[in-house]
Design a protein around this nucleic acid. Sequence first.
DNA 1: ACCCCAAAAATGGCATACCACTACATTGCT
DNA 2: AGCAATGTAGTGGTATGCCATTTTTGGGGT
Lengths: 240, 240
Amino acid sequence: MNQMQAAEQTSPAGLVEKVANYLREHIVMDHFQPGQRLPERTLAQELKVSRTPMREALKILATEGLVVLSPHRGAVVADVSPADMKEKAYVLSVLEQGAAELACENATDDDIAELQALHYEMKAAFLRRDRQNYFRLNQEIHNRIVSLSGNASLIEIHANLSRQLYRVRYLSNQKNDKWSVAMAEHEAIMAALEARDAERIGQELRNHLGKTWIKYASDGDAATSQDEDGGRTTLEDESS
Amino acid sequence: MNQMQAAEQTSPAGLVEKVANYLREHIVMDHFQPGQRLPERTLAQELKVSRTPMREALKILATEGLVVLSPHRGAVVADVSPADMKEKAYVLSVLEQGAAELACENATDDDIAELQALHYEMKAAFLRRDRQNYFRLNQEIHNRIVSLSGNASLIEIHANLSRQLYRVRYLSNQKNDKWSVAMAEHEAIMAALEARDAERIGQELRNHLGKTWIKYASDGDAATSQDEDGGRTTLEDESS
DNA sequence: ACCCCAAAAATGGCATACCACTACATTGCT
DNA sequence: AGCAATGTAGTGGTATGCCATTTTTGGGGT
């Protein structure tokens, strides 16, 4: 499913993609403050595009939860509400639970072995206090488990939701100092997967994500750091 | 959240809504066979609209899984793949499980009482062999439970997925002759909810939806029934 | 008869213009 | 001074035209 996204490849085309990526980048990096208005026409001619792609880009960002489209008051940068994020995180945990239970049935031994390998890579990053790789591998593992469910709809919805949480993940990664518990939980998850214990892995995942995100939610605000961009008006690929 | 949908009210505006509703209706009612092409320009001038709203309408229908947008070969009516539906149904069951567990905590006694009332209404419809109302109440109850979760994201995603399954629900409702088991499962669900047993209601829901939909998946085709429309080319409100 | 290449048709995407509606502000009236 | 009405500007929505890319089709050559 989702032939639309399939059609929107990064390679050949997509002015709306570029615009969306540009805006997304700036919003995620906190170059645009929450609440800031994003006037369709103005922004469009600033970026040297017409309203049409700008319009679609804003719509995409709206579905991603990065901007809010108020009826006749334009688009504004959405603020990350901890409550919202917590809600989404819960849904994510539910989805991963369901995915993991399927994965227990569908995964081959090789799949599990590869997952184990990733897990130990992550553990290595953990021991090295390598935040960057730790987090990357963490996400990789979670995504991999979902992929192993073999359920395309589930994979897609999870990916979508995961994208919506990227912004807060990006911030929370910097100040997440309780790795050890998360690491222990991951151990448990892997053990359950190895044993193909569907029920247990489900519970572990729910618990894992629940804790991780509640911890964030108890923090209040996001660290607003640099807000300087020297008048970037051009629009480049700057692929991810 | 979801300000986009909030902006797309039915009342004042929305040519794209009308087009989308028109197409959706015809697709769901099987007036358009799966695989049939939906040429953007042609259809647009048939419905007396320009390409722009038609384009967006097709996009919406694509996200709803009713049409498939192939890169340079136009839009075609998506065929209901039992495998896809089964996948989506599984996700739905997972979401409802997660929702019900929250509902067990959040629901007031009045909420549960109202749910019980609906349940007995449904039982009445069941005893009367009133397919229409039975199915309507069934959906109502499921949606209500999800609403009681209080998780806006969860509610939204569930609604979206539920919409995607509407087409197959519409068809399967006609030939679903094993009400009794579904009814018994509903009894169990209600009992678990009354006891606020989160774990049990989750399992019951998973089991319930899983069975219901697997039953459909084993069926093959759709019954094409009435197709009276004498060349509808105009485009009216025909609100839901 | 088969294959390859070129022209034509169709599609997607972007730009732009025009119109309707709403929010906001200024002004005038009570 | 407060409130209401009107005007203005900004936004959303739709129509339409043009261009790039792709698919398809038809013709010519081997």
